[in-house]
């Protein structure tokens, strides 16, 4: 279960290699112009050090993604716990959260900019706003999907509510929360990049926007590749956390 066997990685690797090879061949054989579709090799070249200070942009976007993810995770778990803890909180919060979730969050991005100005924080908040809702729902479900018998056990031993929460409900919710966090990992990436599209002075989304005027498509692709590498790293980190915190749950990694 831990660590993926090389044999299982082989088909996926072949798909990627085949895709890149077709791309490379098509570009060189058909003579597609570089500004329309750069070849994988020129994208690879553009990803290296040179005209773009990649380190700075990668760092900015990475901080935004991680910040968005952590805010979404924390807010999601706290709200989900509040909903599971008391009926009153559930009644007060759930309709509002559902309403917030129905808003097109990408459309809120320009507002965040007006309120908070340029910078890392609004981009984090957009990512967090896109990604927190599944965490709320899964946390609440994981905390309440407990066999009645197990709760009777808590009653028999006169266990205080917080103790049943800490020792029975919370661990029970781990697999639920972690599978929501996998969704949140992707949402955080989307949010950060959208924020940078709207307004920013640094970050990989900013790099992509600037290539529009320079027609430097290879750089746009290079930025895209860096974004997907960041996204994959966060996804892998959540997967590792899941195996660490909830090894009993047979969660299959998509």
């Amino acid at each position: 279960m831990n660590g993926i066997a090389p044999r299982r990685l082989l088909p996926a690797t072949m798909t990627f290699v085949g895709f890149l090879a077709c791309w490379q061949l098509a570009v060189s054989a058909l003579g597609v112009r570089e500004y329309l579709l750069p070849s994988p090799l020129s994208v690879l070249a553009a990803m290296g050090p040179g005209e773009i200070p990649w380190a700075k942009h990668i760092w900015t976007t990475a901080v935004e993604i991680l910040g968005a993810f952590l805010i979404a995770a924390l807010a999601g778990v706290l709200l989900g716990a509040a909903i599971a803890w008391s009926q009153a909180a559930a009644g007060a919060l759930t309709p509002f959260l559902v309403f917030v979730n129905t808003l097109p969050k990408v459309a809120i991005a320009p507002l965040f900019l007006i309120w908070l100005g340029y910078g890392i924080l609004p981009n984090m908040l957009i990512g967090a706003l896109i990604g927190f809702f599944p965490v709320v729902i899964n946390t609440a479900v994981g905390l309440t999907q407990i066999e009645e018998d197990l709760l009777d056990l808590g009653r028999v031993f006169n266990a205080p509510k917080w103790k049943v929460f800490a020792k029975i409900r919370m661990p029970n919710a781990y697999p639920y929360i972690l599978s929501a966090l996998k969704v949140t990992a992707s949402s955080a990436v989307v949010g950060a990049v959208v924020g940078e599209f709207v307004a920013s002075q640094a970050g990989l989304g900013y790099v992509i926007i600037t290539t529009q005027s320079s027609m430097n498509t290879a750089v746009a692709f290079a930025a895209l590749a860096w974004i997907s590498i960041l996204g994959l790293m966060l996804f892998a980190a959540v997967g590792a956390l899941s195996r660490l915190l909830a090894p009993w749950a047979e969660v299959s990694d998509a």
Binding site: D149, L153, F157, P171
Partner: peptide, 26 residues
């Protein structure tokens, strides 16, 4: 109390499951 289903905590070892009442009772 013993129920029809064992209702053990999936994330705990057998020993820690057996020790649960002591923890719950403080």
């Amino acid at each position: 109390m013993v129920f029809q289903a064992p209702v053990l905590l999936k994330w705990r070892t057998v020993l820690d499951n057996v020790l649960l009442p002591a923890e719950l009772a403080g």
